[in-house]
């Protein structure tokens, strides 16, 4: 080999060469999951474990397909409750945060109340909410909202208070109104904090929607995946229980992916968190 050979490597052409990193990053986790599923099926088959103890992936897939008529409306209900609760939590969290930072006295007066709401276990207040709420759906929504809104609130309060003091001085200097300062400075400046709250809140909304449904013990046609989980357990229909579980996991993953994308979309142009280190 000549001495010059290593001096210059021409860039590789072709789709696979150019996207090698991205492909590997996608393929490796997929391979791991496939391997684990195969291992699962293998263990079930070799040990002939009965379905009512641990169903194999094939049985779960079968159940997903056959029970889709029962599971899909439940999935839809859980998705709706989660999304509605998250939306309310965003509005409530941001709104209350803006209200709290208006003055030190307001924060001193009201912040403890939000903390009490947060630290009280949702399972413990769910029965109470069930009594007061007009329908079970509304009760579930309230529960999921209470859990999801606190991380959004506390992150937002932190963000609104972390605005660069010199920028605040600058806005004062140019005679900016309270409204202008909020709209052009405080809200954009707290966007990274809001995005953290959104990602945590999204995950918690789903958890709360499920926990609240357990606590509420709701049943019947309008119920979510949590009810289908319990129902499958009572009937020892373990493959269906796993199928419901898979759907819940997938829903969680989708929520995580969407909130991460939203965060990336709004921050990637300017925020350090979305910046690649150049060394």
């Amino acid at each position: 080999m000549s001495d010059h050979a290593s001096a210059f490597v021409p860039p590789k052409t072709g789709f696979f060469a150019r996207n090698r990193d991205t492909l590997l990053r996608t393929l490796i986790p997929i391979c791991v999951v496939i391997f684990l599923v195969l291992l699962w099926q293998f263990i079930i088959t070799v040990n002939s474990i009965p379905q009512y103890i641990l169903p194999g992936p094939l049985a779960v897939a079968n159940s997903l397909y056959n029970d889709w008529g029962t599971l899909s409306p439940a999935l839809w209900v859980t998705t709706q409750i989660t999304m509605q609760a998250l939306a309310l939590a965003l509005i409530g969290g941001v709104g209350i945060a803006i209200f709290l930072v208006q003055s030190k006295w307001i924060e001193t007066a009201f912040y403890p109340i939000t903390v009490i709401l947060q630290v009280t276990p949702i399972v413990a207040i769910a029965p109470l909410i069930l009594i007061y709420a007009p329908t079970t759906q509304v009760a579930l929504l309230i529960c999921a909202f209470l859990v999801a809104f606190f991380p959004i609130l506390s992150n937002m309060v932190q963000g609104l208070k972390s605005v660069d003091h010199n920028l605040l001085n600058l806005y004062d200097l140019y005679g900016a109104s309270r409204w202008q300062t909020l709209l052009y400075l405080k809200l954009p400046s707290s966007l990274p904090y809001f995005m953290t709250g959104l990602r945590i809140g999204g995950g918690l909304a789903l958890i709360a929607a499920v926990v609240a449904e357990f606590a509420a013990g709701s049943a019947g046609a309008g119920s979510g995946l949590a009810f289908r989980l319990l129902e499958s357990q009572y009937r020892l229909n373990i493959p269906r229980l796993f199928a419901a579980l898979v759907l819940l996991s997938l829903l969680g993953v989708v929520i995580f992916a969407i909130t991460s994308f939203i965060s990336w979309f709004f921050l990637h142009r300017w925020h350090e968190s979305s910046l690649k280190r150049e060394n």
């Binding site: 660069d164 010199n166 920028l167 001085n169 600058l170 200097l173 400075l185 954009p188 400046s189 966007l191 142009r269 300017w270 925020h271």
Partner: peptide
């Protein structure tokens, strides 16, 4: 009538 230049550039990173 007055403008201020701080020790730090004090720019809005999102703009």
């Amino acid at each position: 009538d007055i403008s201020f230049v701080f020790q730090e550039p004090t720019l809005m990173p999102w703009q």
